[in-house]
Amino acid sequence: MAEFWLMPVTAVLITVGAPAVGVVAAHAVQARDPLTRGTHSVRAVLTEDPPARIGVDAATAAGARARATVRWTAPDGSVRHGRVAVPAGARAGAHTTARLDRSGHLLRDAADPSRAQAEGVAVGMVAASSGALLLLGAARGARLLLDRRRDTQWERAWERVGPDWGGAPD
């Protein structure tokens, strides 16, 4: 009877539990990122081209970033300027995102919120997969214990009945 319910219960736990573990892990990773907590994004415009990176061609600079001056409008309507990391291939006049703290000051080394989100998704996927594998391992272990218990019961029964099956006829 226990083995009958073992696989359906395991399937339900994997279907519900593994994604729940993944979501909790993803939220935990995103919430612990101090650079994205208490910040907000503003749309900014590059006022200059980022400096050229010596020895780096366009093909290898796909993910490269450089610091350049940007301009944005604060909530009070004043125009602000600051330097932020932008894609190395960006040009003056291009739009980018700047991160500000609660008081409206530019965060120079602010993490990209999409990076924190991507890390959260990756950790969530690993946690969900690990949870599913753990549940499958536990189900396999429970099945081995049930098999061992049945084998022990079968051996005891055979010890009682076995001598009557063998031997020479009378």
Rank of each mutant, 00 (worst) to 15 (best):
A111W: 06
E159K: 09
G131Q: 11
A58N: 12
T15R: 06
A98R: 05
R140I: 11
G162R: 12
H95Y: 02
T15E: 06
A98W: 02
R149P: 03
T96A: 05
L13T: 07
W154Y: 08
T47E: 13
A58M: 06
A66D: 14
P50H: 13
R99C: 00
L13M: 15
D76Y: 00
V79I: 05
L144P: 00
A168W: 02
V86R: 10
P113I: 05
A62E: 14
G55I: 09
D112I: 04
A127Q: 07
L106C: 03
M125V: 14
D147T: 05
S78K: 01
D164H: 14
P51M: 06
I54H: 11
T39K: 06
H27W: 08
A25Q: 11
Q30H: 02
R32K: 13
G93D: 09
G120M: 02
H95V: 07
A127D: 13
E48Q: 14
L100A: 03
A157N: 13
V12Q: 01
W5S: 15
R108S: 04
A88K: 03
V84P: 00
G131F: 04
D49M: 11
V23G: 02
Q117P: 00
E119P: 00
M7H: 04
T36L: 11
A122K: 07
P50E: 07
G77R: 00
D57S: 15
V23K: 08
D76Q: 02
V12Y: 06
S103R: 10
P51N: 10
G141T: 06
R91L: 12
H27F: 10
A62S: 11
A68D: 14
A94I: 09
S129L: 14
G82K: 01
A20F: 09
P169E: 13
G55W: 08
M1L: 05
Q117A: 13
W154A: 12
R71G: 03
Q117R: 03
G141C: 08
V121T: 05
L146N: 11
D76F: 00
V16A: 15
P8H: 10
D170I: 10
G63K: 10
Q30S: 08
L135A: 15
G166N: 07
L107E: 07
T39L: 01
A25H: 07
